[in-house]
């Protein structure tokens, strides 16, 4: 059976603020390497870019009022259907930029479960090199994503080095293999219920209601599940 494989959907999130921005360029280099590696293996990649610069006011609005604007709504849809994600942030004051972090703060906790992610960051100095591993990785662990082993960090001096290209290649193949494995899809189909969800979470797609839960029995006049009150 040799049917053409479905293209992979790759979401690129860039928090670069200028146009063009080196943060976006780094993300693009990673996504195009994923694309070329995939083509060699007979699959195409559809890239959808979420440039956080354009979402800046909607992100702050979502933080203070929970109102999701149209661009945020589209971003959530793009991430929800993505097979893989490239997330790229500039480093400010020894941390990923507030714009980058804030965007991920307002997403539902279960939107990105098990999805493979390449983490990337740019900075003006190599002293920020560990920001990806020490700060961004923990955020994505909280979101229960599958971050690839190789972090991609580019300080000013890295742009002209072949080592950056090698790291990009490593991260790209790691992401591609994780997408190929179908890991995220399988986790979601076999184990989705074992993660915590709220009604309407996962970007508004989590609408199943478990009528047999303890709380549902309590709602229907039954007894509360035995549990100790927290002291």
């Amino acid at each position: 059976m040799s049917t053409a494989k479905e293209p992979y959907r790759l979401a690129v999130v860039s928090a670069g603020t200028s146009d063009p921005s080196s943060t976006r360029m780094l993300a693009d280099r990673i996504s195009s390497r994923v694309g070329s590696l995939a083509r060699e293996r007979g699959v195409s990649v559809e890239v959808e870019v979420i440039d956080l610069r354009e979402l800046a006011t909607e992100i702050t609005t979502a933080i203070v009022s929970q109102l999701m604007g149209p661009k945020m709504t589209r971003a959530v849809e793009v991430l929800g259907r993505a097979d893989g994600v490239v997330a790229s942030a500039p480093v400010y004051k020894a941390a990923p930029s507030g714009l980058f972090s804030s965007f991920f703060h307002v997403l539902d906790n279960d939107l990105l479960i098990a999805k493979p992610v390449v983490l990337a960051a740019t900075a003006g100095t190599a002293r920020h090199a560990l920001v990806v591993d020490e700060q961004m990785r923990s955020l994505f662990a909280y979101l229960r994503t599958m971050t690839v082993p190789t972090s991609v960090f580019a300080a000013t001096e890295d742009w002209n080095s072949s080592e950056l290209g090698e790291r990009i290649g490593r991260a790209a193949i790691e992401l591609l293999l994780l997408m190929e494995s179908g890991f995220a899809e399988q986790v979601r189909s076999e184990s989705w219920r074992s993660y915590q969800h709220e009604y309407g979470s996962a970007g508004g797609t989590e609408l199943d209601i478990d009528l047999g839960s303890d709380l549902m029995r309590l709602a229907a006049g039954g007894a509360a599940p035995p549990q100790r009150r927290a002291e």
């Binding site: 702050t60 609005t61 203070v64 009022s65 109102l67 999701m68 604007g69």
Partner: peptide
């Protein structure tokens, strides 16, 4: 207190 300093009036009336 609830939505001030966040969305604009236009955004809020459109989305809610």
């Amino acid at each position: 207190p609830v939505y001030g300093h966040g969305p604009t009036l236009e955004e809020f009336t459109k989305g809610t």
